[in-house]
Write a protein that binds this DNA or RNA. Structure first.
Lengths: 212, 212
DNA sequence: CAGGATTTCCTACATGTGTAGGGTAACCTC
DNA sequence: GAGGTTACCCTACACATGTAGGAAATCCTG
């Protein structure tokens, strides 16, 4: 019986790395094909070429696997979001561009993100994403307010500060993304960016004022 | 075998009403006690004094039951949210009061809402709530913009318009609520209202400007 | 390369899920 | 109240979940 429950992805053992990679890849494949709630552990294990009991040696359920398997993608997505500009840069072409990139990335893996964020998705993963997004927003607001560069935050922050504006903003972005994906991405990313930026910008502005 | 799948709560048959009520009440009891993901259909049925197969005669799974069982509470909660005021009523004591009432109601059933909105909750239900909240916000923005009273929207709107500001706002409120509940409601409702209102107000203001 | 440590796999079992059929009792309509 | 309708319950089954123990293969270390 294996009793490992490591949270550090760069595991020492070659076998563990292989199984992690195989399971993550298998899950992502399956999620592109069907809803997350229809994916059984046996499916993932078989697709990964791994026994079912080996799955349980590493993850408790499909949601936990999804959490670790998608963190990299999620972080990339979060990284593409626009930061608050120096006060009133109203037209803000840069910000709209990053937002457009954000929605474009979302659309490129629409099947996956829809399956994860939609009604058949994982509340666990959504919560995980909201935490990460909130800390990212928090850092950017703080960074913009103190005008300088901050220490880069390491991979997985265990302590999320209770920052209401940050969670507010994070929830808003998740809401827009989930809704857009679920409708099948009817509007082009550029239009979504144009519609979203004034709202996001307004929140950034409120935060900047409140922080002083 | 029963083949009913009625979406109209005021069912004609007395038996159906009883079963619906019993199941809803049982679920709410259980959700106050433990996480939603730990509640089995057998548990709910037993607590409700109903056979397991009867459960399946009415609902597909626990999430679907939760959706219908909590709609009334959710709608009451949504109804307590502040509407956009006539342009710039900056101190806005009314709005902060309604927001405080909102957070107070949330805290009164903290166990339930945490179990539903938290990481062990139901993505289905969160999606359902976001839809309802988004249409409510949409209506209020529209109503405030056109200055007058609108026709009351009936119980369950099947057609949600693709209103980006509305989903943005809805997601934001859900994010704040979920985060606050999950942390165990550390700050008092009044403080949450004070922190949240400037953000919500800013969104309302952006919408009012955009709508013209 | 030998040694011990770990991972992986297999088997087995108790429990939960979701579906199906059919008997019984409660309900609504007339 | 008699009629047909329908909800409720029981039983059964195929499949998924989660856990446990132990055998065999793979790995890191010296």
């Amino acid at each position: 019986m294996a009793t490992t429950r490591d949270s550090t992805p760069p595991s020492g053992d070659r076998r563990v790395r292989r199984t992690h990679a195989a399971l993550a890849s298998a899950l992502i494949q399956l999620v592109e094909e069907q809803d997350l709630s229809r994916i059984s552990i046996a499916d993932v294990a078989e697709r990964a070429g791994v026994s079912r009991s080996t799955f349980y040696d590493h993850y408790r359920d499909v949601h936990e696997l999804a959490e670790t398997a998608c963190t990299a993608m999620i972080d990339a997505l979060i990284g593409s979001l626009p930061a608050p500009g120096p006060d009133s840069a109203d037209p803000a072409p840069e910000a709209t561009q990053s937002l457009e990139a954000f929605f474009t990335s979302l659309a490129q893996h629409a099947g996956l993100y829809r399956a994860l964020l939609g009604p058949q998705g994982s509340a666990r993963l959504v919560d995980h994403i909201r935490r990460r997004l909130a800390t990212a927003v928090h850092d950017r607001i703080y960074q913009a307010a103190s005008g300088g560069d901050l220490p880069e935050r390491a991979g997985s922050p265990p302590d999320t500060p209770h920052d209401v504006p940050a969670v507010f903003t994070a929830g808003a972005l998740i809401g827009v993304a989930a809704d857009w994906l679920q409708r099948g991405c009817p509007r082009p990313p550029a239009e979504m960016a144009t519609l979203t930026w004034p709202l996001l910008s307004a929140l950034y502005h409120v935060d900047a004022v409140t922080l002083t």
